[in-house]
């Protein structure tokens, strides 16, 4: 469905010289600096798949989406989506895709939503019966009814985002691109949007690419993720594998009987012979509440519990799987340290 081969996008940036003389100089001669926003990325997505595209700020996620949706022309490389090249016949290509940028709206600011949708229906040439059916469906999953007659200008962020997602799905696209669709939204709206995406994917077989910062989005929607950093792909595979590979972290949480007894704890010393590396063990205490994150490759759960229970009196205790946030933090860090790909 989507094939991306060696995609690259370089931006030329003018380097600003400081001061007044710098500005004057830059009129005649300006130094250009090349930013490798996307640096040789390849991946494939199958029909009906939901791919999560993750990476820290400035990694190049939005730039990839902009190239895939035909907004930007790649510096080098190819992408073929649904058998078409986005840069070739733009009008024909965009008819079959839906796009949402979380930070912008594609709705007409001054029109009520119903009118916007009517406009879109004309543009995409959706016939009346299909339109009514699709509208009903979107109304149901995205709960648009309460604000469907309000001008876009007056909508809250959460309402606007739902309206935007509906707008991108009116013509029942084969591929849906979502760039940070849940950014800045509250938990209820986020959940609503996730359910909508997953329902569209299930019922219509829509292929979805989604970028996000929110790891909840990933764990509730995507089986597969591609992670990029500094314009390069650093991971491509299932979420499950990622957890297997980097998921040896556990978190021990307990409440001590009194604050003084916590002073007796010295994990560093206790496990000094386990050959701990950076990040293998972290200790945090807040009053009587204690959190210890540890790498099970180095310290077994049994060892950890034995030591803890043997040193302090605890009121309550539990051991948790590391969440994917933690995994990803480690992955980024690993990449930064070794400078290579994983």
């Amino acid at each position: 469905m989507i094939q991306v081969e060696n995609l690259q996008k370089y931006f030329k940036k003018t380097v600003k010289q400081p001061g007044f003389m710098g500005s004057v100089k830059s009129i005649f001669h300006s130094e250009k600096e090349t930013v490798k926003a996307v640096d040789d990325i390849s991946f494939h997505v199958d029909k009906g798949e939901i791919l999560g595209f993750i990476g820290p700020n400035g990694a190049g996620k939005s730039t990839v989406i902009k190239m895939l949706t035909g907004i930007l022309t790649p510096t080098a490389g190819n992408c073929i989506i649904n058998g078409q090249n986005p840069q070739k016949n733009r009008k024909k290509y965009v008819k079959e895709i839906g796009v949402v940028f979380g930070q912008r709206t594609q709705l007409w600011w001054d029109l009520p939503l119903t009118e916007t949708y009517a406009v879109l229906r004309e543009i995409y040439e959706v016939d009346e019966a299909k339109f009514t059916k699709q509208m009903e469906f979107l109304n149901e999953v995205l709960e648009l009814q309460p604000f469907i007659n309000s001008p876009v200008r007056t909508l809250s962020l959460g309402q606007r985002m739902r309206a935007d997602i509906a707008a991108s799905l009116l013509h029942n696209p084969k591929v849906l691109f979502l760039d940070e669709p849940t950014i800045g939204l509250d938990v209820v709206v986020k959940d609503n949007i996730r359910r909508a995406i997953s329902k569209i994917n299930r019922e219509e077989g829509t292929t979805v690419i989604l970028t996000t910062h929110d790891l909840e989005d990933i764990s509730s929607l995507c089986k597969r993720i591609v992670m990029i950093d500094h314009g390069k792909k650093v991971y491509d595979g299932s979420l499950y594998n990622l957890k297997q590979k980097y998921g040896q972290m556990r978190e021990l949480n307990f409440e001590a009987a009194d604050e003084n007894s916590i002073l007796a704890l010295d994990y560093e010393n206790a496990f000094a012979s386990n050959g701990l590396g950076e990040g293998d063990l972290t200790f945090k205490a807040d009053g009587t509440m204690v959190t210890v994150a540890f790498n099970t490759d180095k310290i077994s759960v049994e060892q950890m519990l034995n030591y803890t229970l043997g040193t302090v009196h605890v009121k309550d205790i539990n051991v948790k799987d590391a969440d994917i946030e933690e995994i990803i933090r480690r992955l980024y860090k690993g990449d930064a340290e070794h400078g290579g790909s994983i």
Binding site: I71, K91, V94, Q106
Partner: peptide, 13 residues
Amino acid sequence: DGNIAMRLIKPVS
């Protein structure tokens, strides 16, 4: 402001 992108993603001239 980059909103041109919103025009480019629609099948209109």
